[in-house]
Write a protein that binds this DNA or RNA. Structure first.
Length: 106
DNA sequence: ACAGTGACTACAT
DNA sequence: AATGTAGCCACTG
């Protein structure tokens, strides 16, 4: 576990139920706007260090479920739909209004 | 210490 | 509009 990853997980934990955010937004909130890829890498490791992290609430900038293949037990789409988030064709419907900006909450 | 990696993005063709 | 390319940077081996 590292500081940067911990920072990422802290933010992901704060994503409200039924809302989503993006890798870029999280990176930006950490003051590392160009490190969106690192957020993705952090999420890849999250299942080891933070198994219960709501990783399904983190999608890419257009609401695409790019990380769905990393979900083993439950599908990313299933988890989102359990929260009332509609997903069609691997994309979050009404993504713009469901988007939660981490910077607004910190 | 150095090169490779990646759940991303923005820009170019 | 739909692909392709190229920066990005903390972590890992």
């Amino acid at each position: 576990m590292t500081d940067f990853y911990s920072r990422v997980y802290e933010i992901v934990e704060q994503i409200p139920f039924g809302r989503v955010t993006t890798y870029g937004a999280i990176a930006n909130c950490l003051g590392a706007a160009k490190s969106s890829r690192l957020v993705g890498v952090a999420m890849n490791y999250s299942h080891l260090t933070h198994p219960h992290l709501p990783a399904q609430r983190v999608v890419n900038r257009i609401g695409l479920l790019t990380g769905k293949h990393h979900f083993i037990e439950h599908s990313m789409q299933e988890l989102l739909e359990n929260e009332g988030v509609i997903v069609v064709d691997d994309r979050v419907i009404d993504f713009a209004s469901l988007f939660w900006n981490p910077s607004d909450n910190i």
